[in-house]
Amino acid sequence: MTAWGVVQFPGSCDERDALHACSLAGEARLIWHEDRDLGGIDAVVIPGGFSYGDYLRAGAIARFSPAMEAVAAFAAKGGPVLGICNGFQVLCESGLLPGALLLNESLRFTCRQIELVAGGADGPFTREIAAGERLSIPVKHGEGRFWAPEELLDRLEAQGQVAFRYAEGQNPNGSARDIAGVTNEAGNVLGLMPHPEHAVDPLTGSTDGLRLFAALAGAPA
């Protein structure tokens, strides 16, 4: 059974939903931000929220936490790491993922269900999701505009690191090339702005998000 750890910072707010999603695909527990020891887990989720209040820049302070040092070491050894929303921002600030997330072009906090198109990235969370498949997953953020220099964007596309794009016409934040989620070069670290952990129960309209968690557990969603 897959053992999941969900990192909780002061200011995290989606750790309970992440914990629930992980528990549908294994067993899950919280990792406090001061913990240096991840304790023999198989995968880590950096959940959404406003870590350390998101003062300065979203994710900028969380990267210095003891738990993030442990996550960086875990990622360097090939451990699967999933960053969602604020977790994506933290991973970009940590240098574990390329690019940066800026204020939405609209300057508005956006919260709605959205269609994603899979890019066919070959990583532990997405290997069961073929390029071109569509997933219905909610977004809720004010700083989700993915940005990277043009040459880096070219490289991400060429190397198959674009895991998800917003479906045509649905880009909620002005992200470059409609990018919603990217992986690192090795593919074991994935970050995305939409919230797969909020799409794991028919009650909330879609179970497409569960596929990311189930893929790692090797279980059908």
Partner: peptide, 8 residues
């Protein structure tokens, strides 16, 4: 390292 993100 902290005050600015040199990428952006």
């Amino acid at each position: 390292k902290l005050l600015a993100n040199p990428l952006i």
